[in-house]
């Protein structure tokens, strides 16, 4: 039975399955590093999914689709930024509202787009790399978005670690009062981080509707935004661990689907919950040292800043 699962195909579909969550999680990590807790990832993702889908269908270009998804996600994030950074609303409540709003808005916009196939996203031609036996099919025969998402993770890691702008972003998340006292524009930096996070979530959503599924159905994100949020926390705000968490989740998801198809004698319910359990378990074990995690956690996470002093 288990022999019917092809490991090559498994790894290949793992990368596809993980990309939406990876994109959303890496964006949310930047937002949280700036000290903002945006629980609206799910909402931004699904609005990105439908807007990206429509843009791709209308123009016939997947690139326009991804751009549309990113813009829609960023627009949702801008709404969140306006409410929390300018009008000082509560971040948790606003984030939850953003998710509910996004789910409703996407079904409204998506009327009449059910059952349509979007234009196919091109594979990235990696030349001889794709011809390597086994490895070529596993790793080097995907669409360009998969590699773009990996590049984004590397870029975010380097940005936060080495660049001055990244240092300022971390400083704002660590103590907004101190950053303000030194003359940094806390609200502007946070709004920019939020827009970046929204664009990433929108991209992740667009990837779902354009490549992973690929078609539009209502509520198609099915909790991917929430697992992205959880991965950021359990990965203790480290880009490398976010990658690990997203791939682990995608991997176990693909594996359990394959196991279900192969008819393994484990109840389906257990298989379905496996990705969530295993991902959180592994990341919790990695970040078992609480004091080191607290060191990496943005101290101002979820706290509103008002320059009153």
């Amino acid at each position: 039975m288990i022999g019917s699962i092809d490991p090559v195909l498994l790894v290949a579909s793992l990368m596809i399955a993980s990309t939406p969550i990876l994109l959303a999680a890496i964006g949310e990590m930047v937002v949280e590093k700036a000290g903002v807790l945006n629980l609206g990832v799910e909402g931004m993702m699904i609005v990105g999914a439908i807007c990206g889908f429509i843009a791709a269908v209308k123009t016939g270009s997947p690139l326009a689709g991804f751009l549309g998804g990113a813009l829609a996600g960023a627009a949702m994030a801008a709404l969140f930024a306006l409410l929390t950074q300018v009008f000082q609303s509560n971040q948790v409540a606003t984030g939850l509202a953003l998710t509910l709003f996004g789910l409703g808005l996407s079904s409204l916009i998506g009327q009449g787009y059910n059952g349509i196939r979007p234009p196919a996203t091109a594979r990235l031609d990696l030349g001889p790399l794709s011809d390597i036996p086994v490895l070529g099919r596993m790793l080097f025969s995907h669409d360009w978005m998969v590699y773009a998402s990996l590049g984004l993770v590397a870029a975010v890691w380097a940005f936060l670690r080495y660049s001055r702008a990244g240092l300022i972003l971390r400083a704002v998340g660590e103590s907004h009062d101190a950053a303000h006292a030194l003359g940094y524009r806390v609200v502007r930096i946070r709004v920019l981080a939020l827009m970046f996070g929204g664009a990433c979530a929108g991209l992740g959503g667009a990837y779902l509707s354009l490549v992973r599924v690929p078609q539009w159905t209502e509520g198609m994100t099915a909790g991917a935004g929430w697992i992205a949020l959880a991965i950021v926390v359990f990965a203790s705000w480290k880009a490398g661990r976010v990658l690990l968490g997203a791939y682990l989740f995608g991997g176990v998801t693909v594996l359990q689907l394959n196991l279900q198809a192969a008819g393994v004698a484990i109840p389906v319910q257990y298989l379905s919950m496996a990705p969530y359990l295993i991902t959180i378990l592994v990341l919790v074990v990695i970040s078992a040292d609480r004091s080191r995690v607290a060191l990496n956690a943005p101290a101002m996470l979820g706290r509103n800043f008002h320059a009153s002093r």
Binding site: I168, R170, A171, E174, S175, A178, A179, L182, N296, A299
Partner: peptide, 17 residues
């Protein structure tokens, strides 16, 4: 008070100012 970042190193704190 209000002007140092606990989770950053001394050099990073200096650079921010």
């Amino acid at each position: 008070h209000f002007s140092l970042f606990e989770a950053l190193s001394v050099a990073e704190n200096v650079a921010l100012g």
